[in-house]
Amino acid sequence: AEKTGIVNVSSSLNAREGASTSSKVIGSLSGNTKVTIVGEEGAFYKIEYKGSHGYVAKEYIKDIKDE
């Protein structure tokens, strides 16, 4: 099942092309942005936001229960 997560940073969080800190940054998400978690790979979540996919470090995403 898809989960919703909240970007848990004070400034912004980089979204990357792949599940690695050396992957190209494809965008950034500001704190408290809601994202859909579609998968996980190592220390990263694969997320969907406004129709695009990217990878973000798990430690900066807070899971919330689907309402």
Rank of each mutant, 00 (worst) to 15 (best):
N32D: 08
I37T: 00
T36W: 13
G31D: 10
E67V: 13
Y55C: 03
G31I: 10
A19P: 15
T4V: 11
S12Q: 10
T36I: 13
S11V: 12
I61N: 00
E2C: 15
G5P: 02
Y55S: 00
D63K: 09
Y60K: 07
I47A: 01
N14A: 14
T33E: 09
N14I: 15
A15P: 04
E17R: 06
V35K: 01
V38F: 05
E48Q: 11
G51C: 08
I37W: 01
D63V: 15
I6E: 03
G5D: 02
T4M: 09
A57G: 08
K65C: 11
E67C: 13
S30T: 11
S23I: 03
I6Q: 05
I6N: 04
N14M: 14
S23Q: 03
K3V: 08
K3D: 03
A19G: 04
T21K: 11
T36D: 05
E59C: 13
S30Q: 14
S20L: 06
L13K: 02
Y49D: 01
A1I: 13
H53A: 06
G39A: 07
S11D: 12
T21L: 14
F44W: 14
G31M: 11
S52V: 13
G51Y: 04
Y45W: 12
A15C: 15
E41M: 08
Y45P: 01
I64A: 08
K3T: 07
S12V: 11
G39R: 01
S20V: 04
K46D: 02
V38Q: 03
Y45K: 02
R16L: 15
K3C: 14
G54N: 01
L13T: 09
K50G: 11
E41K: 07
G51Q: 06
K62G: 10
I64F: 08
F44D: 02
I37Q: 00
S28N: 08
V25I: 13
A15G: 03
K62S: 13
K62A: 10
E40I: 06
E59A: 11
V9G: 10
A57R: 12
N32V: 05
G42E: 06
G42L: 03
E40L: 05
N14W: 13
K58T: 02
V38P: 00
F44I: 01
S22T: 12
L13M: 06
V7R: 02
D63I: 15
S23V: 03
A43I: 09
E67N: 12
V9I: 10
Y55M: 00
Y49H: 02
G18V: 06
V56Y: 01
K34Q: 08
E2Q: 15
E17F: 07
I37M: 01
K3Y: 11
I26S: 03
E40H: 05
V7S: 03
E67R: 12
K46C: 10
K50I: 05
Y60D: 08
K58W: 03
I47Y: 02
L13S: 02
S12P: 08
R16H: 15
D63M: 15
D66N: 11
S20Q: 05
Y45R: 03
G27S: 04
A57V: 07
I6P: 02
V35D: 00
K62D: 09
N32E: 07
K65L: 11
